[in-house]
Design a protein around this nucleic acid. Structure first.
Length: 270
DNA sequence: CGTCCAGGTCTAC
DNA sequence: GGTAGACCTGGACGC
């Protein structure tokens, strides 16, 4: 995925069931509406619809944030968000979000980018017309591709350290059918059930669980880590802030507490 | 050079 | 149920 802030565009390569991935660029048209441009040969009708569905999913265009906006409007600290903030980017699949989240644990953001970049570059399927080398124009690897890669790949190429075992175990479980991560998208599952299943995954603890649940649109719990905690403390003019204090501050948001917290700590990104 | 730590988790008490 | 210690990696920092 690549963001061009100047052009206001987002480029991503989406996997397609039963076919090569395709790269799309999302940007504003002259009317200020979203336009999706597919790279390479024109897609067929079915493929075009699948790509649009993928874009809707990644941008959460079908998510109804109005209950959150109603709460934010009454909060001077977050009223700014009601003009359309809060559609956090997510991955096309739950598997991809879980893998990426594991790659954020106990390391710098630069290390996360390096690990994910290596996975995409070496295992990701190439969209037609994409460069033969490099990560550009490649989809995130399928579970089977990650399962087929050996331990040496995770150690020497991805340089994932001890995370390599988690990534390998996870992808093998998904590829074999023993684990269905995509089922976690089911809105009918209670939060507690999703939370328990995520916590049971290798390399997934409380932080990663909260983060993946956020990606799943379950915003009840703030994502607390070594970046969000100090950032929130700084914003409130304190040296440190307890998790309990954060929970209290955002309790009024109920099931939207995590989204309110995230927007608070990332406000200067907008 | 060594130590610390970054968008934590696991295991063993 | 709660808490030390270990854990890959690489960049930042102090000496």
């Amino acid at each position: 995925m690549r963001v061009d802030a100047d052009a206001g565009t987002l480029e991503l390569t989406l996997p397609l069931r039963g076919g090569r991935p395709r790269t799309v660029t999302i940007g504003p048209d002259r009317r200020g509406r979203a336009r999706v441009v597919v790279a390479g040969s024109p897609p067929g009708r079915r493929q075009a619809e699948a790509l649009l569905e993928g874009v809707r999913h990644v941008l959460r265009l079908d998510e109804d944030l109005s209950p959150f906006y109603a709460l934010a409007a009454a909060d001077p600290e977050l009223a700014w968000a009601t003009t359309g903030a809060g559609r956090m980017l997510r991955s096309p699949t739950v598997f991809e979000d879980v893998v990426k989240t594991i790659c954020t644990t106990n390391c710098s953001w630069a290390a996360t980018e390096r690990m994910v970049g290596a996975l995409v570059e070496h295992l990701g399927e190439r969209a037609p017309g994409a460069p033969a080398a490099g990560p550009a124009g490649r989809a995130f690897p399928a579970p089977a591709a990650m399962a087929a890669a050996g331990e040496g790949f995770y150690r020497e190429t991805v340089r994932a350290g001890y995370r390599g075992r988690y990534l390998h175990e996870l992808s093998q479980a998904v590829a074999s059918g023993a684990l269905d991560l995509e089922a976690l998208s089911d809105p009918g599952l209670p939060d507690g059930e999703v939370e328990a299943r995520l916590l049971a995954l290798p390399g997934v603890g409380p932080y990663a669980t909260a983060h993946v649940m956020t990606m799943l649109g379950r915003y009840g719990k703030p994502v607390l880590d070594s970046w969000t905690r100090p950032t929130y403390a700084r914003l409130t003019g304190r040296k440190t802030v307890s998790d309990a204090a954060i929970a209290r501050r955002f309790r009024r948001y109920g099931p939207w507490a995590g989204l309110a917290f995230w927007l608070t700590v990332t406000r200067d990104w907008a």
